[in-house]
Design a protein around this nucleic acid. Structure first.
Lengths: 141, 141
DNA sequence: TATTATTCCTATCGATTTAATAGAGATTGC
DNA sequence: GCAATCTCTATTAAATCGATAGGAATAATA
């Protein structure tokens, strides 16, 4: 069994939900239940994820009958960099190489000579590059 | 405070220890205690990490007085791809894009149309590329 | 041989995080 | 008014992580 799960289910489900909504094409609100059923996601869990995406400005919502969630921007304008930061958190694997959430490691005496730092800077940049070059439209194709 | 810690301390400490040993240059065994002190790592925790690295063929060990750990191969021959797989586990963030530990996601009905799959393939490749292009020598400079 | 320094091995623990669940409240459409 | 839907808070079970403890095995050396 695949043990390490470095991409949280929150992110995975969030991306799937955004994709599902994007693929619908129109601007009609899509209901949580419909997404949960199609993507085989726990509805209650998905509720909290969509709420996060709404509060972060990716989704709009409408309550009551025929309510649901809809995209606020065009899929081509939704960058993975932004989505990932909201769902998964900082992109850097260690705080000392984070662009947006930098923090010195409490143990490491000198970043300039730290081999982990040196390696993780590169991983950050290459990952960031992927996220910068992918919009919701790209991954929904 | 930086919450997500996607790179485990095991990996971080393991890389630091390998670097420490590599920087010594000679082939004399280096003791756990010395590494732990220098790198500010819990000695007991480091013991288990070095044991893992030995069992995986990166380090040799010598017991008893004047014992310790030493590199089996030259730093320039130790690829980060291999080290990371041993310390951190699969490089892919989700099992369905893992080259060495592939497993179908139990929920996802079709990888071909899965947006998460599409994105994570790219992340895997770019990260793999970084690890392939870095040896222990490179990060120890 | 006795002593000391070191690696080796197993077991356990506390804290944190994750994924999921429950239930009630607020709003909207009909 | 009623049903459908999002909103919010709280709780829980399981897993994982980092750390710790204690002793067994081995090697050097006096």
């Amino acid at each position: 069994m695949y043990l390490r799960n470095m991409l949280s289910k929150k992110t995975k489900y969030g991306l799937k939900a955004l994709t599902y909504i994007a693929r619908k094409g129109n601007n009609e609100p899509v209901q949580i239940g419909e997404i949960a059923k199609h993507e085989q996601i726990s509805q209650k869990f998905l509720e909290s994820i969509l709420l996060t995406l709404r509060k972060s400005g990716f989704l709009g919502s409408k309550k009551g009958k025929h309510g649901g969630y809809y995209l606020i921007k065009k899929p081509s304008e939704i960058l993975m960099t932004d989505v990932m930061r909201v769902l998964e958190g900082p992109i850097a694997l260690v705080s000392c190489v984070s662009l947006n959430f930098y923090e010195k490691c409490n143990d490491c005496p000198d970043e300039a000579t730290c081999s982990v730092h040196k390696l993780m800077i590169q991983v950050r940049d290459s990952t960031l590059n992927v996220f910068k070059n992918n919009t919701l439209e790209d991954i929904s194709k």
